[in-house]
Simulated assay, not measured.
Amino acid sequence: MAQRAAIVTGASSGIGLAIAQVLGEEGFGLTVAARRPEKLEEAARGLTDQGFDVEVVAAALGDEEGVKAVVAAHRERYGRLDLLVNNAGVGIGSPVGEIETKKLDMQLDVNLRSIILFYRETVDLLRAAGAQDGAMVVNTASISAKRGQPWMSVYSATKGAVVNFTEAMHKELSQDGIKSTALCPGWVATPMTEFIQDQIPAEQMITPADIGETMRWLLRLSPACIIPEIQFIRPGD
Rank of each mutant, 00 (worst) to 15 (best):
C225P: 01
D237Y: 02
A202Y: 07
V154R: 09
E42P: 01
T122L: 06
A88P: 12
W151R: 13
I143S: 12
A88M: 10
E76T: 15
G66V: 06
D210A: 11
A33G: 06
Q204V: 02
T158G: 11
G10Y: 05
T193W: 05
N111A: 02
E64L: 10
Q132R: 15
S153L: 04
I92W: 02
R113E: 00
A58V: 03
A33I: 08
E65A: 14
F232M: 04
R45V: 04
V8T: 10
I206E: 03
L81A: 06
M192C: 03
L81P: 01
A11H: 05
I143L: 10
R127M: 00
T31L: 13
Q199G: 00
Q149E: 15
L125G: 00
L84K: 03
G160A: 14
L23P: 14
F52Q: 11
Y119W: 13
E65Q: 14
K179D: 07
W187Y: 14
V22T: 04
R4Y: 04
Q107P: 01
E38L: 09
L125T: 00
L84V: 07
S12A: 14
V67I: 10
A131G: 15
V70K: 12
E167L: 13
G66Q: 07
I7P: 06
E25I: 07
P185M: 01
W187D: 06
W151H: 11
G148L: 05
G134W: 08
A128H: 14
